[in-house]
Amino acid sequence: MEARFDRVQFAYGDQPVVDVPELRFAAGRVTALLGPNGSGKSTLLRLLAGLERPRAGRVLLGEEPATAARASVAYAFQEAVFLSGTLRANLDLALRLRGLPPPERRARLAEAATACGVAHLLDRPANRLSGGEAQRANLARTLSLRAPLTLLDEPLAGFDERGRAQMLEELPALLRRFAGTTVLVTHDRDEALRLAEDLVLLREGRVRAAGPRREVFGSPPDPETAAFLGYTLIPTDAGLAGVAPGGLRPGPGEFMLTLHVEEIVDLVTSVEVVGRAHGERIAVAFPPDFPLPAPREQVTVSAPTEMVVSFTEPAPKRLTAPPARP
């Protein structure tokens, strides 16, 4: 199912929150809404779920307004909320509210619970599950609905580090199996790049960039968006440049800088050399076998031009092709 925003404006009281002239979520694809806190990501999700009515414009799921198409949507809130009773009763209620007959409910419940790793928790009180268990149960409830449009708000919040890594690995397959069109909200760049095929970058309620992730990541429209994506911004004689995350390496190359070393940060598994170039404080990861400079020394660092974006033009200009791997 395709979902789209058509000249949508939304405000809480007098405070404008979202202004989206046009935005499409392609059928069958996974899109991540990425942006800092307060950028309007969750509001976009609530508009898609029909929980909010736009002040102007239309939010359409297929050809229907979102507020009239709730049966097409499955939505996992960031905080897993359950009614009292067992997890089984909670999952069953969700399927019952969709009007499914008992045999199908039982089959879907078992399938989603097993796939999400919560089958052994089905007879436990849902409100007493731990953070990670509750998030998996939340996901199982959402995926069991097999809705044409699945919305996930920060699906990896609430997990500990190990659980998060595991979920990050499992989630793409789960989405392929259970979800149709998927829109997920995250404020974490790596999470978005791991999970989504398309990216929508939001800032202050406006879409700054949207499209396939490689395109969006490779061509940030402005320095603020680039900085949010992890680009290192460096003022040069030719204007402001942005270097993609991981682009800077010690030694000479195409886009060269002289780094005035200030400190060496030992991260145990790697070493970061932090210093200033053109007055900007930047950090460069040094490979383990590379000789480390001492503070107050000067070293040459560089980045391949395909990982450098220039912001001197009216529109941002990629110097060459987008990076092969973000």
Binding site: A49, G50, L51, R70, A71, V73, A74, Y75, F77, E79, V81, L83, L93, A94, L97, R98
Partner: peptide, 11 residues
């Protein structure tokens, strides 16, 4: 969030 949850579930 409970009323929102019930709304999106279709109650």
């Amino acid at each position: 969030r409970l009323p929102d949850l019930l709304a999106v579930l279709g109650a």
